[in-house]
Design a protein around this nucleic acid. Structure first.
Length: 363
DNA sequence: AAATCGGGGAA
DNA sequence: TTCCCAGATTT
């Protein structure tokens, strides 16, 4: 779609009334949310990072715990990284936590703890992309910048009947141009939040509540009866399955062996029980594999319940095997033994939390 | 442009 | 099952 095509879409569109209807509805109907209690740029920032690809209901308890633990830029900047990761445990996309702390440290040192209020400095911060930049500027600083997320693309694709494939990266620019043309300069915060709130409450993906919609009279998709056909979005390819053997290795003190994942890639720096891809070792050789990798002689004890976990782009299918060690004085090559009661100090990804749960239930 | 990066809830 | 959610970064 070209620039002038967008202008054509806006020709018969009452921009002034649209933004008034949207803002009036938002001010009346908005949900009470913990990050809406004030305009503290730090709290706006934290909430926006947590809300990336994550539903409001999921974020609420994490946000409250996180702000209690790290109430200011300085508290987060000087906190222990593992403690931050632990506070993020279960929320997913853990690089968000690492990038956030990295960026907050930069703000503490380079900007004297004040979150920048200009696009260039914000965009330079780790984890702050086009959406989050616009969200911070508009919500925390009342600056009229677009903040285009999935909600905004869905809402505007219907209201203006924009038929671009929203799965394509380039499409975001079309919607940013649309917001530029529509946004209220008097109240950019309520305008941007209103678009998102509308997408979350009314203009939902499957069956939008058009009869309750405050901008129904403006909506070209509703006018044409094609609201459920929009937005157009190409499908993602399905995930690859990977089979693993995972091991609960118990020593004489009833402690279990855990290890830290590498600091890059999937679940970076999180902790886990030892595991190996099935195609790398035959089942009859798994005890030998443990001996070679960890320097531990072990006896098979029993199989625990298998664990299946679906990630964005991969599916783990883990056979879980409980073993006990026979050479308690051996030199451990890697990992550490930790008592069941202290495992909660370590950040675990959900599939390994499930394994911890099994150990707690069966003891 | 496409792949990577988590987890959960709704339909 | 499939979708997709207040996306950013890396390849």
């Amino acid at each position: 779609m070209k620039e002038n095509e967008l202008q054509d879409l806006l020709n018969d569109f009452n921009i002034t009334k649209f933004k008034n209807d949207l803002i009036d509805w938002f001010e009346m109907e908005q949900r009470i949310l913990p990050w809406r209690e004030d305009q503290d740029p730090y709290k706006v920032w934290v909430s926006e990072i947590m809300l990336q690809q994550t539903k409001v209901d999921t974020v609420i308890p994490y946000f409250q715990r996180f702000i209690s633990k790290f109430p200011t830029v300085e508290k987060l900047a000087y906190a222990d990284e593992q403690e931050v990761l632990k506070a993020w445990e279960g929320l997913g996309y853990y690089s968000r936590a690492r990038n956030l702390q990295h960026a907050v440290r930069e703000v503490a040192e380079a900007y004297n703890g004040k979150v920048p209020d200009n696009p260039e400095q914000l965009a330079a911060l780790k984890g702050v992309g086009p959406y989050t930049k616009g969200a911070i500027l508009s919500i925390a600083y009342d600056i009229p910048e677009p903040a285009v997320d999935g909600n905004v693309m869905r809402v505007l694709s219907r209201v203006l009947r924009i038929e671009e494939d929203i799965a394509k990266p380039r499409s975001r620019r079309i919607f940013e141009a649309a917001v530029q043309a529509l946004i209220s300069h008097e109240n950019p915060s309520s305008f941007n939040q209103g678009l998102m709130e509308l997408g979350a409450l009314i203009c939902t993906p499957k069956s939008p509540s058009c009869m309750l919609c405050p901008v129904q009279t403006h909506c070209k998709a509703f006018r044409d009866g094609v609201e459920t056909e929009l937005p157009i979005k190409s499908k993602a390819k399905k995930q690859k399955r990977i089979g693993y053997y995972a091991f609960a290795i118990e020593n004489d003190n009833n402690e279990y062996l855990i290890e830290q994942r590498p600091d890059t890639g999937l679940l970076a720096s999180m902790w886990q029980f030892p595991m190996v891809e099935k195609h790398e070792v035959d089942e009859e050789h798994i005890l030998t594999w443990i001996q070679q990798v960890y320097g531990l002689s072990v006896n098979f004890d029993k199989k625990l319940l298998p664990i299946k976990h679906v990630f964005s782009h991969v599916i783990w299918e883990m056979d879980v095997i409980h073993v006990t060690i026979t050479n308690s004085n051996a030199d451990l090559k890697q990992g550490r033994f930790v008592d069941l009661n202290y495992l909660e100090k370590y950040p675990f990804p959900v599939p390994h939390q499930k394994l911890v749960d099994q150990l707690n239930q069966t003891r």
